[in-house]
Amino acid sequence: MAENEKAKAKTEQAKGKVKESLGQAVGNERLTAEGKAEQTKGDARQAKEKTKDAFRH
């Protein structure tokens, strides 16, 4: 289960980076903001999983 959550975090971060880059390339501020938000969500999910891993060991 934890590996699944880690994969979701990486996917969210990657999708967010693509959206942000695309938004900047075409000058779409909304798309850029969505990308940043997705990256932040992925970062938070990853931090949560790292914290859980730290307490398991």
Rank of each mutant, 00 (worst) to 15 (best):
D53K: 15
K10R: 12
V18S: 09
K52H: 10
L31I: 07
G23K: 00
E12G: 04
A33Q: 02
Q46R: 12
T11G: 01
A33R: 05
L31Q: 09
E20G: 02
T40W: 06
A2Q: 15
A9W: 05
G35R: 02
A2F: 14
K10H: 09
E20Q: 15
T51D: 10
H57A: 05
K17S: 06
Q39F: 05
Q13C: 08
L31H: 04
A37I: 04
A25Y: 13
A7T: 15
K52S: 10
R56F: 07
E3Y: 08
V18P: 03
A37G: 04
D53L: 13
K15M: 10
Q24V: 05
F55Y: 11
K17M: 05
G42L: 00
G23M: 02
E5M: 13
K41R: 15
E29I: 04
S21M: 06
E49Y: 10
K48W: 05
E29K: 11
K17G: 01
G35T: 00
E20I: 03
E3H: 10
D43L: 09
G35N: 01
A25S: 15
Q46I: 00
M1C: 07
V26T: 09
K41E: 06
K6Y: 10
G16E: 01
A37L: 11
T51S: 08
A14M: 13
H57W: 03
G42I: 02
